[in-house]
Computed example of a mutant assay.
Amino acid sequence: MQPMRLQSIDQFLIQPPQPENLAGFRRFLLEFWYFGIKEIRACLFVGLFFASILIVPKAGLFGLPRYDVLFVIALLIQGGMVWSKLETVDELKAVTLFHLVGFALEVFKVSGQIQSWAYPEFGYTKLWGVPLFSGFMYASIGSYIIQAWRLFDLRIRHHPPYWMAALIGILIYLNFFTHHYIGDYRWYLAACALGLYARSSVVFRPLDRDRSMPLLLSFVLIGFFIWLAENMGTFFGIWRYPNQLGAWSTVHLGKWSSWSLLVIMTFTIVAHLKHIKRHIHIAE
């Protein structure tokens, strides 16, 4: 599909035909339809990447191990997003940062001293026991937020001061490392985030009217769907937790809270790197 065609689809979703005399259940159905279509579009990177996890056989393709095939596919998807102008160069920089942040976390978690999980298969593109494609799993979260921001014309009301948001984001990320040595302060950080974002709401536009929801609720919902995707990844053996080495089992529900906190950190990075301060109301 040509770039101009893809851009025209996005433009149609951002500025759909304005309905007249639409109310009640019919309005609900139409808005829900557009909400779903925009969500699917925002999940383009996520959907294509995880579809490749389902499709690529465990033995790999064309003589390449599965991890390497997934890395090549991820690069092609990312390149296609930029070529088709579905992502700008600035947005690519943000996605790359998510990749690096996620990859650093992966290297720490699979290290011999920690061994929180493992990538058991061979791959030419593995560094320090971590396949390079793994960073794209984190990058896909950032890509989703970036795409949703544009498609839904997101605006944030009562956003906390930037330095506070940045501080809690940094502490959340550091806790993924330090809890192995000085204790897990996840719930203390969650309580701080709850107080920090208690008044914050996200305003979005599925069709022609603004709707809103608590920003914290959006973090929790995104975290839940990441947790579902993580279950899919472990089910197909892409990576495994220690308790899944003998037989697969559901990823512990506590990981949902970890992903929700990671979404807060990701959201903070997007808010800064996209220069969206003009769309945010910071409480005095």
Rank of each mutant, 00 (worst) to 15 (best):
D210R: 14
I172L: 12
N175T: 06
G112S: 12
D184G: 05
G60D: 07
P65I: 00
L194A: 15
M213W: 07
V130Q: 03
W163F: 13
Q78C: 12
R5G: 00
F122Q: 15
A94K: 06
R186P: 01
F152L: 03
E230W: 02
A229P: 03
I114Q: 08
A283Y: 10
P17W: 04
I168S: 00
E106S: 11
Q147Y: 07
A283T: 15
L105P: 02
S212I: 05
Y197P: 02
L48A: 15
G60M: 03
I264D: 04
S140E: 07
F45C: 03
P206T: 00
L97H: 08
S140V: 05
Q113T: 13
F62K: 00
Q7T: 08
A166G: 08
M137F: 12
Q147K: 14
L92F: 13
I53E: 12
A139L: 07
D90N: 14
T250W: 15
H180E: 14
L44T: 14
G36W: 03
M265N: 07
F32E: 08
F98N: 04
W117Q: 04
M1Q: 09
F45Y: 12
H180D: 09
W149H: 14
F108W: 14
K274C: 13
L228C: 15
P19R: 06
L132E: 03
G63P: 04
V220D: 04
D90W: 11
D184K: 02
Y185W: 10
T266F: 08
F28Q: 11
M265V: 07
Y138H: 09
F176W: 03
S201V: 11
L6C: 11
T234M: 05
A229E: 11
M4D: 10
L228R: 10
F28C: 09
F103M: 08
I170C: 13
R66E: 06
F108T: 07
I146F: 01
S8E: 14
L64R: 07
Q11T: 10
A104V: 13
V107H: 08
F122P: 08
L154R: 03
A191N: 02
I182T: 15
G246I: 00
G36M: 06
E31I: 05
Y144A: 04
I222C: 10
G102C: 07
S258R: 01
D208F: 04
H180V: 08
